[in-house]
Amino acid sequence: MSSPLPPEPPSTLLLREVPAHAGTAGAGLLGPVFDEVLREVSAARCRMYVLVDLAGPLSAPPVAAALVAMGPGGGEPDAGGGAGPERTGAERTRAERTRTERTRTERTARLRALAVSTPYRGRGLARRLLGDLLTELRADGVRRVRCLAPSGNGDPSPSENGGLPALLAAAGFTREPVGAAAESPASTWENRAGGRAARTVGTQVTYQYDEPESGPPGIVWLVREL
């Protein structure tokens, strides 16, 4: 999936983390799945990553977005209610940010959704975003990232999401050995989850992994050790 050197000007894209709350930058890009995940997982345990073009207008929306839930189960609430209050402010103070970075000690994270804005498709930006956020998570001490495998068969729109399994494979995701998931205290809802992908929202394709579907037999977890 390596792209040739672009003839156009050099890239000025940058990965940014934005607060995961309704209406945040990139939420529209992810579509309904964003709200669904936020209903399940405290916003404080979610990380919203967006790829923005710094040489674009300030008001321009991100060109790609991804949502990651922290914790071994991918975002089930802590037993002790460890999640902090949801931040709604667009900008946290630096001190706050620093503190937050310090307290992030989760070793596992779960990729919940990833989308690239239509006009920017086909430029390898999904790969870029995925690579960037893996680097970010790694720098924060996360050891493994999991996600539900997109189903390969019977996909309604292979042209739109056909690249997803390849993307994940290229990023180093592999099938998690059977039984490995049992090590993590997965919650019941996860067992109901099935791997479906490529949901069309407006003109944007949203890759989504946690849509409740059929029963447990179809579940395949992918994992990437960092």
């Binding site: 156009e8 000007p9 050099p10 000025t12 710094l54 040489a55 300030l58």
Partner: peptide, 17 residues
């Protein structure tokens, strides 16, 4: 020098802000 004129202009705007 590698940046396009538009990129430079936008980035100068951001830096100015």
């Amino acid at each position: 020098a590698g940046l396009s004129r538009l990129q430079r202009a936008q980035l100068h705007g951001r830096v100015g802000e």
